[in-house]
Write a protein that binds this DNA or RNA. Structure first.
Lengths: 151, 151
DNA sequence: CTCGTACTTGACGCTTACGTAAACGTAAAG
DNA sequence: CTTTACGTTTACGTAAGCGTCAAGTACGAG
């Protein structure tokens, strides 16, 4: 089985906080919400690789705009034990839901990016026109008409 | 110029709310935050196509997890008048920032989708194994080991 | 022993994005 | 006139996601 027995590194709360650029308060808050479950040595928290990975997932979830509750269900999917059939079916259902959600977001993002490109093009054109025409004073151009969102 | 003079439809607050499936409260709140500026006929709000488009943009922004403040800057970009050079340069800068943000989100989403696919595959495999082996009772399989996020 | 550093648990505060009444206006229908 | 539908403002409530003290514990260095 080639079991290499890597020392299984651990981290303090401050180390994790520094690495992921969050505050101690935040990490403790996530624990309070059941998203992290560090070991306790006496009163002190000791974070294992598992916790570290989960923190990464949590923060990615946050970047995606999920609520902590949603993140909880997602993260728990990642390291769920196989369990019984009902559990597995439920998990598959959750996956379907999440995927639909993410694909909607992706469509939104791509649409927004396309529109940003248009706005940028208009912007550059205006800038160019402005510089061609009047190197010092600005003036309203006729091309500016009809660009507002009132079509 | 082929100016067709379309009647320029308007909507009541309830109509917009129904169409976009939000509450009246929400729409009024967006107005309070300066995101919408409907016409007033007496005391009553009258929404024009421009407002309708903006509401759509706002809601898409929300789906993407932006705050209303962020959404405000985005939406205002869409129907900004050309203005002076400084304005244009600022706008281009904003566009760059937003684009970077959105592209980060897209990467996050794609990574998450890939991982969801993996989880799903494992899940289906477990389910299959469970059904092959024990059509009635569930049992823990050896393949279940080492899947948790503690690698 | 004292200091410094890192950690702990409360507990209160704050912002965002609305929900939820309460109380009132207006205009058409019965 | 009363009801009904639809709209209005004002204002307090709330859940999420932390920030920010305050006060105490634990431990190695000097």
């Amino acid at each position: 089985m080639h079991n290499v027995r890597v020392p299984a590194q651990t981290w303090s709360i401050a180390e994790l906080a520094a690495e992921y650029d969050v505050t101690l308060r935040t990490i403790r808050f996530y624990e309070d919400r059941g998203l992290l479950t560090p070991e306790r040595r006496g009163t002190v928290r000791v974070y294992h690789p598992r916790d570290r990975v989960r923190l990464g997932l949590i923060l990615r979830g946050k970047r995606l705009g999920f609520s902590l509750d949603e993140i909880a269900t997602i993260v728990d999917m990642y390291d769920a034990e196989p369990g019984e059939e009902g559990q597995l079916v439920y998990l598959l259902d959750q996956i379907t839901t999440r995927r639909a959600d993410l694909e909607q977001r992706r469509r939104d993002i791509e649409e927004t990016l396309r529109e940003l490109n248009e706005v940028e093009a208009r912007c550059r054109a205006d800038l160019q026109a402005l510089r061609d025409r009047q190197p010092s004073r600005g003036r309203q151009t006729a091309k500016a008409v009809g660009r507002r969102a009132d079509s």
